[in-house]
């Protein structure tokens, strides 16, 4: 177990996840759903919250069970926990948000193999106490949701001229259908990652 004094506090962990170590933009983890569900804001928000819920629950259980975990069974236990909560999310969506569950389809069960969740269980929850792990889960989850929303905003506004189904562009705006399709997803994500690098570099240059 890590030395307590060197362990970052819960608040630092929470903030870290949102921007400085944003899982999608900085660490480039969990990008499959990032590209697949960001054609519209609604899908992005639902996916972000679903992943945050799973991350929160898995960090909770992993942190509670960390004393019993042994190297060779660790990943197995992580997987059981994650798959269970993903199944719960899937059932919830099918029962209460039927249309959304049809839009997201198999991308919901694919949260099981979302690298962010297993990476946080391994790197944080299995080594830290309960509270920091939960703060970490919330921070990373919100960071993930934020990244999805940024990407979805770009894509929805350009592809449909709407944001959360509210028209935002001027009358007669030519919609960019390509942004809704696979090439648009890759392009928008590439540009957002590049822009993020640019902003960070400028900020660091100003600091020094």
């Amino acid at each position: 177990m890590a030395d307590k004094s060197s362990e970052p506090s819960s608040l630092v962990r929470f903030i870290n996840g949102i921007l400085p170590e944003n899982p999608v933009l900085r660490l480039v983890l969990g990008i499959c759903p990032t590209l697949a569900v960001t054609a519209s804001m609604e899908g992005a928000i639902t996916m972000g919250l679903a992943a945050t819920f799973v991350l929160f629950c898995s960090n909770f259980f992993v942190s509670l069970l960390k004393r019993f975990l042994q190297p060779h069974l660790r990943i197995l236990v992580f997987t059981i926990i994650i798959a269970t909560f993903v199944t719960i999310v899937d059932m919830f969506l099918k029962a209460f948000m039927y249309d959304m569950s049809r839009t997201l389809g198999p991308y919901i069960p694919l949260i099981i193999v979302n690298c962010i969740i297993i990476a946080r269980a391994e790197a944080c929850a299995s080594k830290s106490r309960l509270l920091p792990s939960l703060a970490d889960a919330l921070g990373m989850g919100l960071g993930f949701t934020l990244a999805l929303c940024i990407l979805a905003s770009v894509r929805e506004i350009l592809a449909d001229g709407t944001w959360l189904n509210i028209p935002v562009m001027w009358e007669g705006f030519t919609t960019w259908t390509i942004m809704k399709l696979a090439p648009g997803a890759f392009l928008a994500f590439g540009l957002v990652v590049g822009a993020n690098n640019f902003i960070r570099r400028k900020l660091e240059e100003r600091k020094s």
Binding site: V28, A182, A185, L187, F189, G190, L191, G194, N197
Partner: peptide
């Protein structure tokens, strides 16, 4: 990563 994604866009 960024340029790889943009190349992937052209491939797609």
């Amino acid at each position: 990563v960024a340029i790889t994604l943009i190349v992937a866009a052209i491939l797609a």
